[in-house]
């Protein structure tokens, strides 16, 4: 019977495996990058893109005010997350996914 780890290895695409091993090979460096510049860039992207995703509310400003209020909290969370987690490739995937989502919101709003 095949081992679960071997099964998951086989089901993971080669690119993803290489990506994960590249990050695991330089854990300290990547942790610095994720908790440092990546955290700031993500928080800025969140603040810039969330006005296009949040509802304006009764006063017509919720979508503008909430991202600004959330900015310090998001930045802090993005700093702590890579330090507290053992699985760095997962953090990399999460940060890339979030960055892609935030950029999509901004580009979508400009194309509209």
């Amino acid at each position: 019977m095949m081992d679960i780890a071997v099964l998951s290895r086989l089901s993971t695409p080669v690119v993803a495996r290489r990506f994960a091993s590249a990050i695991d090979g330089h854990q300290t460096l990547w942790r610095w990058i994720f908790a440092g510049p990546a955290a700031l860039v993500l928080a800025l992207l969140a603040m810039a893109s969330l006005p296009f995703a949040l509802p304006a509310g009764r006063g017509g400003v919720n979508h503008l005010v909430l991202p600004v209020v959330l900015f310090p909290v998001l930045w802090t969370a993005f700093v702590i997350l890579p330090v507290a987690t053992r699985n760095l490739p997962r953090i990399a995937a999460l940060y890339l996914g979030l960055a892609f989502f935030f950029l999509l919101l901004i580009v979508g709003a400009f194309l509209r």
Partner: peptide, 18 residues
Amino acid sequence: VDLVGSAPSSGSLLAELM
């Protein structure tokens, strides 16, 4: 006059509490 926005909302309440 609300601190922000034209009517009371969660956003204006949050900004006013700061």
